[in-house]
């Protein structure tokens, strides 16, 4: 489903922040991406959600070579990917409901189904009372939950979450991890970037570790903590 071969990445003319990254993720897997701050977790996810092209190497998503894909094909690939951005990226002028509804509307879903689906999911993540709230009136943790709801609302084939529980307390973090695992059970491939060692320990899944731009795949789970 996701295949990287000797991938290098740099921002503009800057230094390479990822070197020779090679790995493969199969459909239905659940993986953590761990590493210290600045190791390149966000950068690696950016490559996977096609916000950035690699400076070298080969990336194949859903079987399509990203380097060869045309602009509009990238858009189509992206609709199969749900992303929880580290900085949420909610649209400030839209309510929680409309933010979460966005991927459905972009994909051309029927409006009659949109409202119901979205309200249900928002209630599930504990935001039933904030459905019509604008992001500016939400706390960090509430915004994070809106961002998570938006990422999963379309039941994407691939879910990429960048520190998705960073602003949540332990209990809520666990609850949302259950959501990811539930999605994974019904077929979504999940990659979660995190530096929360507790979460990794309590909910064991294969780990990819990034250290200064280099990737080690699947070390024994105990060693990550």
């Amino acid at each position: 489903m996701v295949r990287f071969e000797n991938v290098g990445m740099r921002y503009g003319m800057g230094p390479e922040v990822l070197h020779d990254v090679t790995f493969e993720i199969n459909a239905g897997e659940f993986r953590y991406l761990v590493g210290p701050s600045g190791a390149g977790k966000t950068s690696l996810l950016r490559l996977m959600y096609l916000a950035h092209r690699p400076s070298r190497g080969l990336i194949s998503m859903f079987g399509a070579d990203v380097m060869l894909a045309r602009r509009q094909e990238l858009m189509d690939l992206r609709r199969g990917i749900g992303v929880v951005f580290q900085d949420y990226r909610l649209l400030a002028h839209l309510s929680a409901l409309d933010n979460v509804a966005l991927p459905l509307r972009v994909a051309g879903a029927k409006e009659s189904q949109v409202q119901e689906h979205v309200s249900e999911l928002l209630a599930w993540v504990g935001l039933a009372d904030h459905i019509h709230a604008l992001p500016e009136s939400l706390s960090g943790g509430q915004k994070q939950r809106v961002a998570i709801a938006r990422a999963v609302i379309t039941r994407p084939r691939l879910l990429l979450a960048d520190e998705p529980t960073g602003n949540l307390d332990e209990a809520l973090g666990q609850r949302l991890l259950r959501l990811f695992e539930e999605l994974n059970r019904i077929g979504t491939t999940v990659v979660i970037a995190t530096h929360n060692q507790n979460m990794v320990a309590r909910n064991p899944h294969p780990v990819m570790t990034l250290g200064s731009g280099e990737l080690r795949v699947d070390p024994p789970i105990g060693k990550a903590s």
Partner: peptide
Amino acid sequence: ELLHLIGARD
């Protein structure tokens, strides 16, 4: 940019 990231076509 966000719209593009969630797959909105031009």
